[in-house]
Each structure stands twice: as structure tokens, then as C-alpha cells.
């Protein structure tokens, strides 16, 4: 995973959360070098993630700038992306930028259980550190985030959802 081409691809950032590299987000799944061609595999976070085209363009440009003439980007759908793939460095970067990082993704066996109560997460306000936070909505400005509000400092903040 530490080829020169991988090292270049690993510097490309997420267009919607630019504090994260695609590697830290867990979206960069591999880089293969065949003769003169570089094939980069990425996976979408959510099916409708509108940032995939920009990620692809950014990877192609960055690798071309580094001297790789033939760059291809392929989609890898299996296994499906999990928020567990966000690296420790990525979690720290999220927190440093006021976004609450995800807890552990649910691991289920058997049918998905209906949950009619607000999702309970043990999270803290990324600004003041208070654990007195309330969920505003399970859906936010990007597909991967929920909206919260800190009841101590009263600031709203985003939380990356566990999937």
C-alpha cells in the first residue's frame, strides 16, 4: 500500500470534508501500478455521494502532476464503506475542525431492528467538550452527517454517522 503512486493518491482530500484525505476517510481502497498505468480504486461512502466525480478528477490530476500519464479510477462497491474505516488521524482531524467523529458502526446479525427512539450516542461537543448534547436531525448538509446542538455552549455541530 506504500507505493509511490499510493503516496500521491493518499494526499488527495475529500471535497466536502477537506480536512480529511481520501485515505483517512477510508474511501481510497487501493492503488495498482501496471506498466505505465495507475489504477486507483475508490468506494462511495453513500450510494448517492455527489463527490465521487470530484474525487476521481482530483486523483487523476494529482497523479498526472506527479508524472503518471495513464491514470484510471475504478469504483469498488464491495465491501460497502463503513464509518469504521475512518482512520484515527482522520477522527482527530474531524474533531479539530468541529465535527464529531463517528462511534463504532453497528454490527448486526439477523434482520435490521426498527428503532423508533432517537439514536443515542455518547458524544461530546467538539467545541466545548460538554456531553450535554441533543440530536437535531439524523440528516445534515452531507449524506454522512447528523446534526446536533450542544446544550451547554448552545452551538450546533455535525456528527459523522455510524454506518
Amino acid at each position: 500500500m506504500s507505493s509511490p503512486a499510493y503516496a500521491v493518491a493518499a494526499t488527495v482530500t475529500d471535497p466536502e470534508m477537506p480536512m480529511l484525505t481520501l485515505e483517512d476517510l477510508g474511501v481510497l481502497r487501493g492503488v495498482e501500478e501496471h506498466d505505465d498505468a495507475v489504477v486507483v480504486a475508490i468506494t462511495p461512502t453513500y450510494s448517492g455521494c455527489p463527490a465521487m466525480a470530484t474525487m476521481r478528477d482530483d486523483l487523476v490530476h494529482r497523479l498526472r502532476d506527479a508524472g503518471y500519464a495513464d491514470v484510471r479510477v475504478k469504483v469498488e462497491l464491495t465491501p460497502a464503506w463503513s464509518s469504521d474505516w475512518i482512520t484515527e488521524r482522520g477522527r482527530q482531524a474531524l474533531a479539530d475542525h468541529g465535527i464529531s467523529p463517528p462511534g463504532s458502526a453497528p454490527h448486526r446479525s439477523g434482520p435490521v431492528v426498527l428503532n423508533l427512539l432517537p439514536t443515542r450516542r455518547a458524544i461530546a461537543c467538539p467545541r466545548c467538550g460538554s456531553a450535554d448534547v441533543e440530536l437535531t436531525s439524523e440528516f445534515g448538509a452531507t449524506a454522512c452527517k447528523a446534526l446536533y446542538r450542544c446544550t451547554a455552549c448552545l452551538e450546533p455541530f455535525e456528527h459523522v454517522k455510524e454506518i
Binding site: P15, V39, A41, P50, A51, M52, A53, T54, R56, D57, D58, H61, R72, V73, K74, V75, E76, L77
Partner: peptide
Amino acid sequence: SHWAFGTDFEDPLAGV
């Protein structure tokens, strides 16, 4: 390439 989202069609199954 940062103009809008991408500059040409993106196949959602590219390479699959």
C-alpha cells in the same frame, strides 16, 4: 476540475 462537480460523465460502475 473544481468547477462544479466534475467535468464529464462519471460511470457509477466504472471498473466493476
